[in-house]
Nucleic acid binder design. Sequence first.
DNA 1: AAGTTTGTTCAGTTGAAACTGAACGCATTT
DNA 2: AAATGCGTTCAGTTTCAACTGAACAAACTT
Lengths: 171, 171
Amino acid sequence: MAKPVSVPPPPSTLARTENDMIEACGRFAQSLGLARSVGEIYGLLYLSPEPMNFEDIAAALSLSKASVSTGTRQLMALGCIRKVWMREERKDYFEAEQEISTLVRRAYERVLKERLKNSGEHLAEMVASLEADKSKYGDEEFRVKLHRLKQLVKIQSRLRKVLPLVDKILG
Amino acid sequence: MAKPVSVPPPPSTLARTENDMIEACGRFAQSLGLARSVGEIYGLLYLSPEPMNFEDIAAALSLSKASVSTGTRQLMALGCIRKVWMREERKDYFEAEQEISTLVRRAYERVLKERLKNSGEHLAEMVASLEADKSKYGDEEFRVKLHRLKQLVKIQSRLRKVLPLVDKILG
DNA sequence: AAGTTTGTTCAGTTGAAACTGAACGCATTT
DNA sequence: AAATGCGTTCAGTTTCAACTGAACAAACTT
């Protein structure tokens, strides 16, 4: 009768604490535009007193080697984890960067500053193209659009002022 | 010979300025965890000097009525747009809330505060369950995990302090 | 009251990103 | 140099949310 089971959670030999941490980090990663599994790997490593290798990670999160490979690579590129060489061992071991405040600041910079920069550039382009196409718009229409774009520029510069402040407090 | 064309961008009778705005808002919406189309609708309305109805919106963005319906509903719930009643007209017209600074603040509150609250709750849970399962861990292991969770709690409270500050500056 | 016009809801489709298995490459060991 | 152990890469599958078409409901017109 045994129906083919579809393993709802991982085989989960993990304690509640670890599970919560992994889940929370997974969601956080998603909110940063990363894959959930990337966050999960970090969460697992963050609470692990010992460095972990591919097999351990894959087993704990029921991921494939491939996913662990790409996940760890991303995390290394972001400076969130690092490789640890264990004597007499050929496997790669990883441990989490523990200075979380650094990581959080980096994450926020990556996301917010990038976004500010992009939107700044786009705004400039929009104003430019609006003025270039001025003749295609009615007089009133042009005035309205320009005014609205200018509003956005204002907010932009206000946001710019906030950023370094946050930086300071978190640093 | 006419190959079935797959309409790359919308039929786009839109000017460059509008297109840029729509695109930028679409991406911004995604970064807030909303559907891209929701942001696009807002962007379109923000630059429109006149309120627009379903048909106009759907045509301009090449969306279905259904998407426009759900999109406008979400935007209304967020207070980003409002219905406008046009005399002698049965259709619903929409216009963008123009006080953008209010909206940006609201958006940031919705996302960040929610996230802070959740992570705060989870952290508390984690600490609790860790202490409940203390006996299952080795002595050193317990100590390490507890210490690391405490680090997170610290950062949390620092972030909490930043929020009202940002509020002030944007307000 | 039959027929429009307009907006909502819902089941199904689609598309993109994440994940996987399998093949591969590079070391190290025998 | 064959064999084994590890990590990476890639083509194919899975998954999940957004979008759509079509049926529906409500309000208005004839």
